[in-house]
Computed example of a mutant assay.
Amino acid sequence: MAANEQQEPLTGPVPGLRRRVWCRGCRRLLTDPESVRRRWGPECDPDTRNGHERHDVDQDPIPGL
């Protein structure tokens, strides 16, 4: 092999393709850029300051409790 002929590494990412990232909690494939950055899906993220909106429901108390 000549000095100017070098093999390309096989471990690097393929150019033009996005890398796949799975949620740390439920192991689902993440697509949202913020979720990919944090590696947590919106349902599994332990930090509530992540920018995902919470939906709280007002409920009447259960009778007898």
Rank of each mutant, 00 (worst) to 15 (best):
35 S>K: 09
47 D>Q: 08
26 C>G: 03
7 Q>K: 10
55 H>N: 09
61 P>N: 14
31 T>N: 07
21 V>T: 06
39 R>C: 05
11 T>M: 06
9 P>T: 09
50 N>L: 07
35 S>Q: 13
61 P>F: 08
9 P>N: 15
22 W>G: 00
11 T>Q: 15
52 H>E: 11
5 E>F: 13
53 E>L: 10
65 L>V: 14
3 A>W: 15
27 R>E: 11
42 P>C: 06
32 D>T: 13
23 C>A: 03
22 W>E: 04
62 I>E: 09
54 R>Q: 09
8 E>I: 06
1 M>L: 13
24 R>C: 03
47 D>K: 10
42 P>G: 05
10 L>Q: 03
34 E>N: 11
13 P>T: 02
23 C>H: 04
12 G>H: 13
62 I>Q: 13
49 R>E: 10
46 P>A: 02
2 A>M: 15
52 H>F: 12
61 P>M: 14
59 Q>D: 09
3 A>D: 14
11 T>E: 12
6 Q>H: 06
33 P>F: 07
8 E>D: 10
24 R>N: 08
7 Q>S: 07
8 E>G: 02
22 W>C: 03
60 D>T: 14
57 V>A: 05
47 D>V: 04
20 R>I: 01
63 P>L: 06
51 G>W: 04
30 L>Q: 05
21 V>L: 01
38 R>P: 00
2 A>W: 09
28 R>Q: 10
5 E>A: 14
6 Q>E: 08
22 W>D: 04
62 I>G: 06
17 L>G: 00
25 G>P: 02
2 A>C: 05
1 M>K: 13
64 G>F: 03
60 D>I: 13
15 P>Y: 00
60 D>L: 15
33 P>W: 07
40 W>M: 04
27 R>H: 15
25 G>L: 11
55 H>W: 09
20 R>V: 00
16 G>W: 01
33 P>D: 03
62 I>K: 06
54 R>C: 07
30 L>T: 00
54 R>V: 04
43 E>D: 11
35 S>W: 08
14 V>N: 04
53 E>Q: 13
32 D>V: 09
52 H>P: 00
20 R>P: 01
18 R>H: 01
61 P>S: 11
36 V>Q: 12
12 G>K: 13
61 P>Q: 11
58 D>I: 08
32 D>G: 04
54 R>K: 11
47 D>S: 03
46 P>C: 00
53 E>H: 09
40 W>Y: 11
52 H>T: 04
17 L>I: 11
14 V>W: 04
11 T>N: 15
34 E>H: 07
58 D>Y: 10
40 W>N: 06
64 G>Y: 07
10 L>G: 00
26 C>T: 09
35 S>L: 10
48 T>K: 11
60 D>G: 14
